[in-house]
Amino acid sequence: MPRGENDDTARFMRAIAGFSAAPETVTRLGRALVQSGGALEAMLVEINETVLRRTLTFRTDAGATLSLDVSERRVLRVVDAPVSEDKRCASVVKRVLTAEDAKPLMRLLADCIPPDDQVYVVSALPDDPATAVFEGISVRDLMDVKAPQDTAAELPKRLADMVVQGKNNMRAMTCYADREALVRWGQNDLCAAADSILPSLLPDPGPSVTLWHGGLREDSALLVISTEGFVICAFCDAQDVSRCFGAWQAYISNPNHT
């Protein structure tokens, strides 16, 4: 399609979108999404209502931007996203997605757009040729994946803060409630290893933190934290053993941790 025609069509589509939306919801950033269930849910609703192929650009007042190539209620591609420190999230950007990418994509959405921020969307025609409709991830698949931000909100605030801080010092971390993973972060193989040992770990009635070290992976240590009904399995560098253990020990020894 010639570039000028594409631009005209995109402008026309924006005009139509502006007319069709309630006037007060259209701003310079785009159409404000109704967010009764938070930013992530609002984006999923928008994707679910997109049947013809469009590039949806989500923005917030704070400047966060995320562009998705959407068609037939499926996310075909992440066109543009902020650089993610999480390798699994970064791996889904600018390539054709499959159903297996649902978890990292949800994590990317949650990381890019804060849950309480107002989200705006601009819908435009995509620049590149059409992609086969059987590619991408359906909204249903995305909704089946628990969003990290939503589940992190289930953690007590101070514990959630510890988990977020821990990302800086850990190779991998998984937080479980009732043996179900709520939050995963870091190397895939270590997250899978945490899943594999969880059934062997006896539940600790009181708050505790246990660290194991030894074996061929002399550079790694495993931390298991049990507190407030949650179990956290984390891998840290051997050189950070004292610091990581000390931080969690201080956390559980503080009686105000709930």
């Binding site: 290893a193 945490a194 594999s196 040992i197 009181g206 708050p207 505790s208 933190v209 246990t210 660290l211 194991w212 070290h213 030894g214 074996g215 061929l216 992976r217 790694s220 240590a221 495993l222 053993v241 253990f245 969690w248 020990q249 559980i252 020894s253 009686p255």
Partner: peptide
């Protein structure tokens, strides 16, 4: 096994903190 010591071995150190 997770730390690479194998099922027949065991970790060389465990630290356990309570309250």
């Amino acid at each position: 096994q997770v730390l690479g010591a194998g099922a027949r071995n065991s970790p060389t150190m465990a630290l356990q903190a309570g309250a």
